[in-house]
């Protein structure tokens, strides 16, 4: 178990997404980081709402879901410890593109998007390193979506 008083800088440093990033960069975003917990079934993010933060999952599981009026709520990807939720905080108009629901008790670190963008703007070398982590996540999720579209078990 972790210590009751969270060491946010330590947690940022150890999260697989940020592991190995420049300490100065992590220091710059530490102050803009909050921890947050959710119970099973709680909405973590909601489609169309402002995406003000980048979310790092520490414990638990978040299901990314799409909702349409004419069909049941559909879960398309689950995100677990060590993974991130979303890049909408980076890309205007900064609105979430899906719902995110905790599927079990979940703890995340939320980093303020405006601070993060400013830090990336100021530190191009760190920004490049950051992108080398973010782009593979996007690429992997795109590939997952493609395979899901293929419906490989459905033929």
């Amino acid at each position: 178990m972790r210590s009751p008083r969270p060491d946010l800088l330590g947690e940022l440093r150890e999260h697989p997404f940020l592991r190995g990033m420049d300490p100065g960069f992590l220091k710059a975003i530490e102050g803009a980081t909050q921890e947050r917990s959710f119970g099973t079934g709680d909405l973590v993010i909601r489609e169309g709402e402002a995406a003000k933060e980048m979310l790092l999952v520490q414990h638990g599981k978040i299901g990314l879901e799409l909702v349409a009026p004419d069909r049941p709520r559909l879960s398309l990807l689950t995100v677990g410890p060590g993974e991130i939720v979303g890049w909408s905080w980076l890309i205007p108009p900064h609105l979430w593109l899906s719902d995110g629901r905790a599927l079990k008790p979940t703890r995340i670190l939320a980093i303020d998007g405006a601070t993060l963008r400013a830090a990336l703007e100021d530190r191009p070398k760190d920004a490049y390193q950051f992108m080398l982590r973010l782009v593979p996540v996007i690429s992997r999720r795109l590939q997952i979506a493609r395979i899901q579209v293929m419906d490989i078990h459905g033929v």
Partner: peptide, 8 residues
């Protein structure tokens, strides 16, 4: 590959 709300 995909699930409804009853899948955790």
């Amino acid at each position: 590959d995909r699930a409804g709300v009853d899948w955790y």
